[in-house]
Design a protein around this nucleic acid. Structure first.
Lengths: 192, 192
DNA sequence: TCAGGATGATTAAATGTTTGACTAAATGAG
DNA sequence: CTCATTTAGTCAAACATTTAATCATCCTGA
């Protein structure tokens, strides 16, 4: 990799206000970012910025934890888990519905099904009535795998939830639900 | 793609309890999943399961919204935005620190920097003291881009936050903060 | 001093994601 | 009935992510 030749267009010196940026980490960066951004642009909505920034970082951290401690050691990936999870709990279904329920595109389900089928965890079958459509279902091996993995998965979920009191958890779940049932979520879920 | 040959190992019929799985969507699947899973395995922690499932789906939906309405139309990706955002608000820094602050691996930052450098949004410069280390900084074009994009970004954040009342938002942010400051998050953030 | 071990960055290989194009099959208006 | 349109799935190209291996550089202790 060639080092950049330090042309004049590179802002190489820290701009004023970055002086305190040296003792930051993944968590404290949130406060720093909100402070810097709103100092530079007072029109920004700080509480909304905090909500999205923290929500995203928390979700990433939880997913990384589940994937690295539960699923990768069992030989599979988070996206693979998500698709098998849907099939486990809602039964065999068309690829299109699996995409809707797992929240990705049909193309991603198609690609994902390739590896999962290769690994013997799910089966594909062309529908006889509508021959465009493909029905996905767990194999017995797939069912056994996910059923076994989900115990460990839920144990980690429980450890996370234990960070909050029972009341706080109930409140948190209520607010999550309000957000995901709200107009923005309804508007946004258009991956199809 | 070859249809599976419907061998006996494929669980092709819906198991009992899947009868009501036909009128599900991305949102109502959460309730269905919790009901089915706890019916099958009463030892599971339903509230914890709900928390993680909803948290993940909400975060994915918000990110997809921001990426598809704000960032992709401007010609860049969510991961690219995240890296530039860190450089914007904390100033030039080593690649290693950029990885810590943006929450990915050093390898991912290295790959991401390739495309961003190619597109003229950031510059790389070998450190003269420690010649292993590489310093990343925004170009003026990169700075202008992110500054322009962040107005629209924050407007979408605001729309999401408006789903909650002011009190609810304050509570939600407090609980997000408690979770991300808690022992699980501290334990889990070990991507380095 | 210098050999062994740590550290920063990159690359490699495998996976997964997106959008957009393409194929094949079903549907529906005339 | 036929032809245009819609729909399900897949493919292709561009990107991004992970872990593991590799390379170069720095540091440390005998």
């Amino acid at each position: 990799m060639e080092p950049a030749d330090d042309g004049p267009e590179v802002l190489d010196e820290a701009a004023p206000g970055h002086a305190d940026a040296d003792h930051l980490d993944y968590l404290s960066f949130i406060d720093h970012a909100i402070g810097r951004a709103t100092a530079e642009r007072p029109d920004l909505d700080a509480a909304a910025m905090r909500m999205v920034l923290t929500l995203h970082r928390l979700a990433s951290t939880v997913v990384y934890d589940l994937e690295s401690t539960v699923h990768r050691p069992s030989g599979w990936t988070w996206p693979g888990f998500r698709l098998l999870f849907v099939l486990w709990l809602a039964g065999p279904m068309e690829a299109k519905r699996a995409a809707e329920l797992s929240g990705t595109s049909r193309a991603a389900v198609s690609a994902l099904a390739n590896t999962l089928e290769r690994d013997g965890l799910l089966g594909r079958r062309r529908d006889t009535l509508d021959r465009r459509s493909v029905r996905l279902s767990l194999t017995t091996a797939g069912r056994a795998s996910i059923s076994a993995a989900f115990g460990a998965h839920n144990a980690r979920e429980q450890a996370w939830a234990d960070t909050l009191t029972d009341d706080e958890l109930a409140t948190f779940n209520r607010l999550l639900d309000k957000l995901i049932q709200g107009p923005q979520a309804t508007r946004a879920n258009r991956r199809f």
